[in-house]
Design a protein around this nucleic acid. Structure first.
Lengths: 94, 94
DNA sequence: TAGATATTTAGATAATAATCTAACTATCTT
DNA sequence: AAGATAGTTAGATTATTATCTAAATATCTA
């Protein structure tokens, strides 16, 4: 399983993309993130775990809280993937 | 359902991403595309239909063949989405 | 028009993924 | 140490998705 596959799978869910958008502005605890959704805390925890596996977010415990933050390095890889796709310099027809 | 959601859903499958990579170099008929895979033709047809719905590819009949080509305009929107996410100018902490 | 080729559509099945409640772990406070 | 708070893990259920075979549609050619 290519590493990018995890990333795309992670991005395929709207809740997970919303989480990334939330973290764009500021780091947040799991609870704060969950407050922005109507689904249960365990579900959010599950989404966070998938985002973590995909290396799209990082987490760090601070007392009772676990603070999540965006990890932009993998996103850079994705942008490269897309730019590569839209770079039609190797295209033969049309 | 946001339009970008279709796009992300479409990109979440490795076969569909491989199809996009194939079309990057040259336009191809459905059959030619299917020849690059070990899964059945109807399955590929299904994948192509999802890519078409997501506006990631276009198709045009030419005789018995249906020729598929990449539609980069939606990919540009995606790149914008990613760039927006990695643009941390609005970030308050860390 | 009959047969061959290219592709899609229909319908069924199997694998994945999202979600829930209940229970567990970790940390803090008193 | 007991209780409260924050978060995760387990296990089950439901919904979604990928895939298959069989049948249908469209086009070409003899």
């Amino acid at each position: 399983m290519t590493p990018l596959n995890n990333t795309f799978k992670a991005l395929s869910d709207p809740s997970r993309r919303k989480i990334l958008q939330l973290l764009r502005t500021q780091d947040m605890t799991a609870g704060e993130i969950a407050n922005h959704f109507s689904i249960s805390k365990p579900s959010i925890s599950h989404h966070l775990s998938i985002l973590k596996q995909a290396d799209l977010v990082q987490d760090e415990r601070e007392g009772q809280n676990i603070i999540y933050s965006l990890n932009t390095s993998v996103l850079d890889d994705l942008i490269t993937w897309f730019l590569d796709l839209t770079d039609t310099s190797g295209k033969e027809n049309s």
